[in-house]
């Protein structure tokens, strides 16, 4: 008993990380990311006079706000143990469908609603392939990434749709501000807040954690894991659709090549924020901080005049370092914190 008792008692405080959503204690990942971001900000404020300005911060926030909505969906999807490579294409798809319908005479709100529903429809198709046929979400979403991108090009004939005729009330979503704060940022914060609370507390999202942690154990607990996965896949596509119509409002255009490679940035942010590709762990706050870190780094590299050719390499290295560090930390804990016999 002695060895075991000590272990059970001694391992209490370090274990909050993976189960951190349950209790506030030990959100080590989030705190660590926040510290890194703050240190970077302080260092940058010395290196560049332009860094610590409201304009720069607003630009950084704006740059990841709309993508941040998709990150929320991706995080939920990673927690359930699936992945979606098609989000970049689906963002573009919503943009193109919305733009196409607007040009065809729909009012922009109806057009946007239909575009979001069409994105959910893409999610439904992928979810059916995953839950009914039993294919892996990686390969299904890889296929849909290409299919949907093809649709975007086919619908537009390969040329951007110009939407300068969008009414100001609709453009306000993507371009307006309330008391100096861009509406886009407000929408982003609202989405993050709602889903952060839901993910931490709602029974529905608890089932997402159960399913991602151990799908068989979840099934053996009476949870309909297929329904849970279905829901997560459709949710992610729907949020991508929402992001798409906000982009449409922001840019006043629908470009059929928009959002290429976006999925990688989004997955990287979620993983840096602590989401596991094996499912069962991840937080919205962590993913958003991951996104913020990538954005601060990008902004810093630009202000420091680093060649754009090197920026991807540096971002990739950060992703690698974050994941490797996390893995080693986890392994170290297992070696010291687990029973050995």
């Amino acid at each position: 008993m002695s060895v075991m008792g000590e272990l059970a008692a001694g391992s209490g405080e370090g274990e909050g990380r993976r189960g951190g959503w349950l209790r506030g204690l030990g959100n080590m990942r989030e705190v660590g990311l926040l510290i890194i971001i703050l240190v970077l900000c302080v260092a940058m404020s010395f290196a560049s006079p332009y860094f610590l300005t409201w304009t720069n911060f607003r630009a950084m926030l704006l740059s990841f706000s709309i993508e941040g909505i998709v990150v929320v969906g991706m995080t939920v999807l990673l927690i359930v143990g699936a992945i979606d490579l098609s989000v970049g294409s689906v963002v573009c798809f919503a943009m193109v469908i919305g733009g196409y319908l607007f040009l065809a005479g729909f009012d922009p709100w109806t057009a946007s609603l239909i575009a979001i529903l069409a994105s959910s429809g893409i999610g439904v198709l992928m979810a059916l392939a995953v839950t009914r046929i039993g294919l892996h979400s990686f390969i299904v979403s890889l296929a849909f990434m290409v299919i949907v991108r093809g649709l975007c090009l086919a619908i537009t004939g390969g040329t951007p749709l110009s939407l300068f005729a969008l009414p100001p009330s609709f453009k306000f979503i993507g371009q307006g501000s309330i008391h100096g704060v861009p509406v886009v940022i407000l929408i982003f914060l609202a989405v993050v807040l709602v889903f952060d609370i839901l993910l931490r507390r709602a029974t529905l999202f608890r089932r997402v954690f159960y399913t991602g942690s151990n799908e068989r154990a979840a099934a053996y607990s009476g949870i309909r894991t297929d329904r849970v996965k279905f829901f997560c896949i459709v949710l992610c596509s729907t949020l991508a659709g929402l992001a798409g119509v906000i982009y449409m409002s922001r840019f006043g255009a629908a470009t059929p090549t928009f959002g290429m490679g976006m999925e990688l940035n989004i997955i990287a942010a979620a993983v840096i924020g602590g989401a596991s590709l094996n499912g069962g762990s991840g937080t919205i706050l962590g993913a958003i901080l991951g996104m913020a870190l990538l954005s601060v780094v990008s902004s810093s590299l630009i202000l420091l005049d680093v060649s754009p050719y090197w920026q991807d390499t540096i971002r990739g290295l950060i992703l690698f370092a974050a994941v490797a560090f996390d893995h080693l930390l986890h392994k170290h804990r297992q070696a010291t914190g687990r029973k050995t016999s």
Partner: peptide, 25 residues
Amino acid sequence: SEDRKGSGVFLDMPIAANVSALDLD
């Protein structure tokens, strides 16, 4: 289940969340 780790418990989840998995209501 006979397969404790494979389908009995959620290893990386907290004890409390494991206990409530059958009926969250």
